[in-house]
């Protein structure tokens, strides 16, 4: 029996988390790991999904750290495949299965969701341009050409998950993940996924100005390895 764990890093996602959990439970029957990244009030109060694993960081560390905690935990629990999923409701639970199957069939160790291969209704114009720049930047940094590196939905094989060590606590972890894929010569591929840009996910998500900070973190990551 293949064990699939879905890791959802969440920080103050009280508004959307329940709907996200229900959506996932309605479409797949995998283990669900919620990493509460020091939310106030704690998210445990609003999670009532039976069998759901809840891990709580005592203080807020950032999405990268929460994801890594979820990965460590899932590996300890014997996960064969680990899926990361955002808590703000921008992903479609129906996209999980194809990613998992791709890993299962051994097509790749890391399967990343890409909103450019798929549909992204109402993507803000600025976001499109930014992501394009990020793509060029990643290519220069890693030599890997990905259509969409900063997408929260991905599936990792157990092998990939045990090798990848995310040390960037904040948003630069998405870039770090690519560097790790390259460092361990993991097989990767992209599959189209749908991303829903709601007013909420736009507000909660990364502001475009924040990309400067991410860039800064990435450069410093390279310097202080």
């Amino acid at each position: 029996m293949i064990k699939v764990f879905i890791v959802i890093p969440a920080y103050n996602e009280q508004q959307t988390l329940s709907a996200v959990i229900e959506g996932i439970m309605a479409s797949v029957e995998y283990e669900l790991v919620i990493v509460d990244d020091g939310s106030d009030p704690p998210l445990a109060n609003i999670i009532h999904q039976p069998g759901c694993h809840i891990i709580r960081h005592a203080i807020n560390l950032g999405q990268g750290a929460a994801l890594q905690t979820g990965i460590c935990y899932s590996l300890q629990k014997g996960a064969d495949i680990i899926v990361s999923f955002d808590a703000d409701g921008q992903h479609d639970p129906l996209d999980i299965k194809p990613l998992v199957s791709a890993v299962l069939e051994g097509k790749a160790d890391v399967v990343m969701g890409s909103r450019f291969a798929g549909e992204a209704p109402q993507m803000p114009f600025m976001r499109k341009i930014l992501i394009h720049f990020a793509r060029i930047f990643h290519f220069l940094l890693t030599g890997l050409w990905m259509s969409d590196a900063h997408n929260g939905i991905r599936a990792l094989s157990r092998k990939a998950a045990s090798k990848i060590q995310l040390k960037e606590n904040r948003m630069a972890h998405a870039t770090e993940l690519i560097l790790e894929i390259k460092r361990h010569s993991l097989k990767w591929m992209e599959l189209p996924v749908t991303v829903h840009y709601s007013a909420y996910s736009r507000k909660k998500g990364q502001s475009s100005a924040n990309s400067i900070r991410i860039l800064f973190d990435v450069v410093l990551h390279k310097l202080f390895r």
Partner: peptide
């Protein structure tokens, strides 16, 4: 924090 969080993980 990670070690402590994992040690205190709970399952609904």
């Amino acid at each position: 924090i990670r070690n402590q969080a994992i040690a205190n993980a709970k399952v609904e």
